[in-house]
């Protein structure tokens, strides 16, 4: 009986000592300057590709459509946490994307722009 109690205590102690939790966050892609309140305001029909690229920097991707050019900006935020209790462990990870796209005509004049919906993006710093 004493041996059983010892083994039980040993295993319980091992579980308690080995349990833990961890969290992580990684950010990839361009900086989401378009979310900053003081960034340039875009005006369809007058803003040019030069205005956008000088305000936001090089885009993540440039796409040549038939008559239009697309500047595609993307920020990826990955957040996760894990809880380790030996007998039961869990890990959860969420990857969110914040995007901005700008469509220009052949002269480089802005035709349309759009940002990711607010409810898809977490603006928390950390």
């Amino acid at each position: 009986m004493r041996n059983t109690l010892f083994v039980t205590s040993l295993i319980t102690g091992l579980i308690v000592l080995s349990s833990g939790c961890t969290s992580w966050q990684t950010d990839k892609g361009v900086e989401a300057i378009w979310r900053q309140p003081d960034h340039g305001q875009w005006s369809v029909g007058s803003t040019t590709d030069e205005d956008v690229i000088s305000a936001l920097g090089p885009p993540s991707q440039m796409i040549a459509l038939d008559d239009e050019t697309v500047f595609y900006y993307m920020r990826e935020k990955s957040k996760g946490q894990a809880y380790i209790f030996i007998l039961w462990n869990t890990s959860q990870q969420t990857v969110e994307y914040d995007r901005a796209v700008f469509f220009f005509d052949k002269q480089g004049v802005l035709l349309k722009y759009a940002y990711s919906k607010e409810n898809e993006v977490d603006h928390g710093e950390n």
Partner: peptide, 27 residues
């Protein structure tokens, strides 16, 4: 009772890592 404790200890020792991993990517 000893048998129950022993079985419990063996189960705890054998089932040592039920894990749940979830990833949400994009929306």
């Amino acid at each position: 009772r000893q048998l129950h404790v022993t079985v419990l200890v063996l189960m705890l020792g054998a089932l040592s890592g039920c894990t749940s991993i979830t990833k949400h990517i994009g929306a």
